[in-house]
Design a protein around this nucleic acid. Sequence first.
DNA 1: CGGGAGATTGAATCTGGTCAAATGCCGTGG
DNA 2: CCACGGCATTTGACCAGATTCAATCTCCCG
Lengths: 233, 233
Amino acid sequence: MRSNAAFLPVSEDELRAIESFRVGTRTVAPGEALIVEHVRSPQLFTLYAGWAFRFKTLSDGRRQILNFLLPGDFIGLQDEFAEGQTHGVEAASEATFCVFERDRLWDLFHAQPKLGYDITWLAARGEKMLDDNLVTAGRRNAGERVAMLLMHLYRRAERLGMVRDGWVDFPFNQQHIADALGLSLVHTNKTLRRLQAMGLHKLEAGWLRILEPHVLESLGDYFERPLRRVPLI
Amino acid sequence: MRSNAAFLPVSEDELRAIESFRVGTRTVAPGEALIVEHVRSPQLFTLYAGWAFRFKTLSDGRRQILNFLLPGDFIGLQDEFAEGQTHGVEAASEATFCVFERDRLWDLFHAQPKLGYDITWLAARGEKMLDDNLVTAGRRNAGERVAMLLMHLYRRAERLGMVRDGWVDFPFNQQHIADALGLSLVHTNKTLRRLQAMGLHKLEAGWLRILEPHVLESLGDYFERPLRRVPLI
DNA sequence: CGGGAGATTGAATCTGGTCAAATGCCGTGG
DNA sequence: CCACGGCATTTGACCAGATTCAATCTCCCG
């Protein structure tokens, strides 16, 4: 995975530090929880393969997906200090994670400040993506929301080399999309259908294809900046 | 400010490192920009006094306030890597900031890993607050949104000792609230009015008073966890 | 006293939500 | 091979929470 051009190289020392920080791996089946909501996890994770997502639910069951997780994403910092009020994380496809002990995070910072810096960088990147999602949920209409989400996910997957012949694995159902965008299931369906009828994208059997990237980008007023190489913990 | 019980103490060494990292202070008038949207700032900031907020706008002018900034908040990490696609930051009251050189951030991590850890902690905390805002914009209705926001801001201000006789300085107008919640100005006004008529809060002449905290908390399904002491950079 | 910004209100309209039912797709069991 | 059950997707009809439009009203300030 480190050979992927999307990630920054690390030194021998750093790699050793990461290895000793890691305590194992874990594989989660689609629909299963990696982190149960409201239960603080004593571990941190890096997604290695597959798709997952972070979410929160209100007490009456309304769910909001906070963001989608792709390989390389570092998970769990957010509840570093949140007692009980944590997010949940669930696998959308089969997903494997690298597992770290939260308690040893400080040791890692101490031993390898560069890795600490990388983790901060990842946290800042996560915050940036949340910013975009918040603009979407707060100020975009249904069509714009869907367009933004499709392009966002497509660009990220593309950067990781997950696109084959124009198609990306897309293991989400319409309920996931609705919960990510703050729309109802029915309205999400109608909007998706409308954009597809306009020939902007195709979504079938768990695969996504973008047909008119520029149209979707301007519809969603969302232009993914050139994606830099990202540190991998 | 460091004597404020909301903040964690720092060692002599750390304090020296912070001092040398700092390059000055800056004061911004209400309504003025600290960071202009789309312009990457070569500096990082810590808000010292006053209220500010972070926001993004769509190309047709629709604005989304991403979060509100109170003393102690660390600003600017988010665009560590975002070329051109940055947020804006504007002062709501007169606000003073501590200024740091972004380029020297790595030096700080290197010299004082503990401070690097603190910065990561602050970033994670920021992400957590964004999570809550995203749930609000995506899944709460108007009444719930307003209730959540009022309690959120009140609790944070309270923690910083900014409440006097039950009143907090509240330098935001209804447009700010609307933009933070993803509502229209008119609907925000009506909702605010309705909650006030129910006797839940009072908002006048730039001051906020919470009359029924428990009612607002359950209405918004939002219960601020006990706020820990926070590192201050 | 006139001007301007923010707050309020009422009315009309519309986007998106809710309800209900149909359709399509699989995997299982007879 | 086919019927049945469960889940996701679609669709149509209707409803309502929010937006938009258009005035007013209230202060505050020069």
